[in-house]
Write a protein that binds this DNA or RNA. Sequence first.
DNA 1: TTTTATATGCAACTTTGATGCGTTATAATG
DNA 2: CATTATAACGCATCAAAGTTGCATATAAAA
Lengths: 137, 137
Amino acid sequence: MENSTEQVLKKHGLKNTRQRNVVLEEFFKSNNALSQPELEKRLKGEMDRVTLYRILSSFEESGILHSILDRQGTMNYASCNASCSAAHHHDEHLHFNCDNCHKIFCLDVKIPAVNLPAGFQVAQLSLTATGLCDTCS
Amino acid sequence: MENSTEQVLKKHGLKNTRQRNVVLEEFFKSNNALSQPELEKRLKGEMDRVTLYRILSSFEESGILHSILDRQGTMNYASCNASCSAAHHHDEHLHFNCDNCHKIFCLDVKIPAVNLPAGFQVAQLSLTATGLCDTCS
DNA sequence: TTTTATATGCAACTTTGATGCGTTATAATG
DNA sequence: CATTATAACGCATCAAAGTTGCATATAAAA
């Protein structure tokens, strides 16, 4: 009998390894984005540091996770919604950085359209807010 | 007779040093944001790497520059407009990252207001676009 | 069960950034 | 103009984040 992390890997055509399942578990357990340093801390002993980096980028490429850079410049990862694919990430929602607990939340807020000066062609828009999250405020 | 970089330093209460004038020159010559690595390359030989870091943060603190993190996670700096101060940066405009030349432009586009879920208090909003700039498109 | 391709672990390296400390230079004062 | 206190600078050192090459281990297919 297969558990859900194995199903996700299979669905995205990724080999079913112990390390990948362990990483995926962490995202299933969490309701907010996880930073690379936080993941590294949690998974110390479970796998090599390099393996974690490689798993995170392969998950991003195959549309399991999307990456978010917080304002300190550290990489964070969050689960993609069902419509994400390798070709295109649908992460055009607002990313909220809490100034207190430093967690990052993907909020279901559409990014409004903007008018750019002539000659500028927009490929992607990203909107980030800082402040206090619902538990910290 | 004083040149303009010296005037800027004086206005912001910073000591008038050769190194600070050299850094400020670079921003006067450029019409887009400059990344830390780019600055380091241009000023190699002019000053120590650490000095550049310290100058950039002191310029940011005193409201001469504001910092922008690009999507690769590298720090970029751009001139502030006149209303910036140590206490508060008025950099609530759109930052445009060109996918081709990788330059960053501060565009005069106001960030539209958004409705957040209950409990989330916004302190700052930042809007970033990627795509092709006016010279690359 | 064997084979083959992929994933992992390890070592080494690069880049970005920070810190402590002795030395130099600015700018205020006599 | 000379003196001096303070702030800035340069150098050495260190840490964190991320990358690369290669040998070994392990899924999954034959």
